[in-house]
Amino acid sequence: MNKKLAVALSGGAVLVLALSGCSSDEDKFTVDDWAKKYCDAAQPQIKKRAEAEQLIRSTASDGKPADIQTADSKAFQDLSDADKGHAAALRAAGTPPVDGGEKLVKDAAAEFDAESTAYLNLKKQVDALDIQNQQNFADGLKPIAEGLAKIEQNQTARQKLRSGETGTAMAKQPGCKPVKPSPAAGSVT
């Protein structure tokens, strides 16, 4: 009688495990799930970046040094904050279930962190410019423009993330779609 009870109990345990869905496909974390998690968290950063870039573009290069300094300083701070937010969103989304997914996220987040720091350095340079002397100010903007161009060229890890399965999954997500800056983004306050 005890053998029958043991067989029944072990059979019942197998049945409970099967019904609980331990091997169910519903429990799998897909690349699309990862992309949704990342893109939903990244959307505010994408908007902040678009507005900061618009602020830089909309500031007249022949404008008053104080206006240019104010606009560029704000834009560089916002770009730094956006990149820091992107890195945090990547880390929070976890590892995408693709070959090399952990490295993809780690490298892209590190790239965002480095870019965030580079934008803060540009902000410090802009804030230190002499706005009283137009020529000195213009001369001081040249290395800042070069630094900005250098930052924009170094996006290798993000390009890898935006390619392959992760890129395809991200492209499907509304949160990763480019956004248009709000009309107020171009005005300097």
Rank of each mutant, 00 (worst) to 15 (best):
L104D: 01
V105D: 04
K106Y: 03
K106L: 05
K106E: 12
D107E: 13
D107C: 04
D107T: 07
A108N: 10
A108H: 12
A109L: 02
A109Q: 03
A110S: 12
E111K: 01
E111M: 10
E111A: 11
F112H: 08
E115N: 12
E115H: 13
E115V: 01
S116E: 05
S116T: 10
S116M: 02
T117N: 09
A118D: 12
A118N: 10
Y119D: 06
L120K: 11
L120P: 00
N121Q: 14
N121F: 05
N121A: 14
K124H: 02
K124R: 07
Q125M: 14
Q125V: 03
V126R: 03
D127F: 06
A128R: 10
A128Q: 09
L129P: 04
D130Y: 07
N133Q: 03
Q134N: 11
Q135D: 14
F137G: 00
F137S: 03
F137P: 01
D139W: 02
D139F: 14
G140C: 06
L141M: 14
L141T: 02
K142S: 08
K142D: 07
K142W: 01
P143N: 13
I144G: 04
I144D: 04
I144P: 02
A145P: 02
A145W: 06
E146D: 14
G147R: 06
G147M: 11
L148V: 07
A149E: 15
A149Y: 05
A149V: 06
A149K: 15
A149R: 13
K150Y: 00
Q153M: 09
Q153Y: 01
N154H: 14
A157R: 12
A157L: 07
R158H: 09
Q159H: 08
K160P: 02
K160A: 12
K160H: 12
L161G: 04
R162Q: 11
G164E: 00
